[in-house]
Design a binder for these strands. Structure first.
Length: 377
DNA sequence: TCTGGGGTCCTAGGACCC
DNA sequence: TCTGGGGTCCTAGGACCC
């Protein structure tokens, strides 16, 4: 099945981007209101038998900040930062392990509330969505307020909304007045509001591309808009170079993707300590079996089977290797995944300790039940 | 004080077929 | 024995996003 997209008639559009504020941390504050106003960090693993709130300074081990409250950000703590580094910045911050089942439940609730107002929604993950407001009556200011009120009523949480003529600009706009903000921009606002921002504010310009741009003396989106397109094509290639130029001018014709079919599913884990491929063989085997078991459960829940199975290894120097295999028959069972993963692992040369092991199911298909009549054509 | 887990998309080379 | 393109599938790696 093809992804369902909204029609692109070429007429002016009105697209909203809605982004929940410090999402996981805000959900936790609903549960523990006594933590309001304090630096709180979500991250790390749940420790069995833990009593009361853990302080960041007492944390030992691997893990990163998944998200944190605004008071924690005031200390310089950021998403993706190692927890040990975060502890150096904000030792007294409260550390909470993530509770993803609750976050998913609250996520469904806020999306359902938005759908009551505008049903054309593109899911962008657990805490953000695009909404097509083109055919919805009311001023943008009015609709933004209604969306925020609906989310608040359904979840008790605040969010930030950007409304512009396209996804690219709305994604940038929703960041501008965070938290609890509304930003409405037209194309005429691009020079004053968009061009002063760093090029990395564009969704799709990551650390690598930004570094390359800076080396060319391009720091802001305005710099990028003024850059010679021929230079961009030469340095970044036909496709990405042309996109950079269009993005800097706020041009984005992408439609919303309303329905998306899963393309792959995976399970991976980082070990508490790096494991030796031979000395820790038994431990690694147990981990592989556990990952295959969990992935098989995920596949069963979705009623899917995998025609390609892959493994991912991260070594102690952080290098990554992957191997995958395409099978004649799709597999969905833990045993089937394990056999295919073992085939892949045989093709890896192990000359370092391992930090992470992952198993991936790709080329997903709806399995034909065993014994069921199969169509000849 | 080293850096999680779940995804998508793109590129590029080689195999294989017409 | 040598010379072509075009198209698709498979595999590995990398950038990027939430």
């Amino acid at each position: 099945m093809q992804p369902t997209e909204t029609m692109d008639s070429g007429a002016p559009r009105r697209i909203a981007h809605l982004d929940m504020d410090a999402y996981f941390a805000s959900v936790e504050l609903l549960r523990f209101p006594e933590l309001k106003g304090l630096p709180v960090v979500i991250g790390g693993r749940r420790r069995p038998g833990e009593q009361g709130f853990q302080r960041l300074r007492d944390y030992r081990g691997r893990g990163v900040v998944t998200t944190c409250t605004y008071p924690a950000r005031a200390f310089g703590v950021r998403s993706g930062m190692g927890l040990m580094k975060a502890a150096a910045l904000a030792p007294d911050a409260i550390l909470l392990p993530g509770d993803y089942e609750t976050y998913s439940r609250v996520s469904r609730a806020f999306k359902a509330a938005v759908a009551e107002i505008a049903p054309l929604i593109e899911d962008r993950g657990i805490d953000e969505i695009f909404i097509d407001l083109t055919g919805v009556a009311g001023s943008s200011e009015d609709l933004a307020r209604r969306l925020k009120e609906a989310v608040k009523a359904a979840t008790g949480l605040t969010c930030s909304v950007g409304i512009t003529p396209n996804k690219l600009l709305s994604k940038i706009a929703s960041e501008l007045q965070k938290p609890d903000g509304i930003t409405i921009l037209g194309l005429e606002d691009i020079p004053a509001r968009i061009w002063p921002l760093p090029a990395s504010a564009v969704n799709g310009i990551g650390p690598k591309a930004f570094e390359k741009l800076e080396a060319m003396g391009i720091c802001t989106i305005g710099d990028l808009a003024a850059a010679d397109p021929a230079q961009l094509l030469m340095r970044f290639g036909q496709s990405y170079g042309a996109w950079l130029h269009e993005a800097a001018h706020g041009r984005d014709g992408r439609a919303l993707t309303i329905v998306r079919e899963a393309k792959s599913m995976s399970r991976e884990t980082t070990f508490e300590r790096d494991l030796h491929p031979r000395e820790d063989r038994e431990r690694l085997t147990a981990i592989l079996l556990d990952l295959c078991g969990r992935l098989a459960q995920d596949l069963e829940r979705k009623g899917l089977a995998a025609r390609t199975v892959g493994v991912k290894l991260r070594f102690d120097d952080f290098s990554i290797q992957s191997r995958d295999v395409t099978l004649i028959w799709a597999v969905a069972s833990a045993d089937g995944l394990r056999d295919a993963a073992r085939d892949c692992l045989r093709r890896v040369t192990f000359d370092r300790r391992l930090r992470l092991l992952g198993v991936r199911a790709g080329s997903l298909v709806k399995p034909v039940a065993e014994g069921a009549p199969r169509p000849l054509f």
